[in-house]
């Protein structure tokens, strides 16, 4: 029962990740790709946190918070230079 639930959770996250990758590949504009990258990092955080519970490792949460900080800085930098470019 609990194994099946784990599989459902991970499959849902994976399906979300796949659709974001399709948007990342398709674009059509650069800001579309930037928000797709942002969402990929959020879903990756979801994966990390789920694995922290699965393998009983609270240390994984540090990775999640670092990922959140880096992806925020990345989005801000992308937005800043996108606006400067025109």
């Amino acid at each position: 029962m609990i194994e099946a639930l784990w599989i459902v959770i991970l499959v849902l996250l994976s399906l979300g990740l796949v659709s974001v990758f399709i948007r990342l590949a398709r674009g059509p504009y650069l800001p579309d790709r930037v928000i797709a990258l942002d969402l990929i990092s959020v879903i990756a955080m979801g994966f990390i946190v789920v694995y922290a519970v699965r393998f009983n490792q609270p240390a994984f949460l540090d990775v999640a918070i670092i990922l959140a900080i880096i992806s925020f800085l990345g989005t801000v930098a992308f937005a800043y230079y996108l606006e400067k470019r025109i």
């Binding site: 849902l12 979300g16 796949v18 948007r23 959020v42 789920v50």
Partner: peptide, 14 residues
């Protein structure tokens, strides 16, 4: 499960 479902919805949304 709820959180994973919302992530899935976010993927569909984008």
């Amino acid at each position: 499960l709820t959180g994973a479902f919302f992530m899935f919805l976010a993927g569909i949304g984008i």
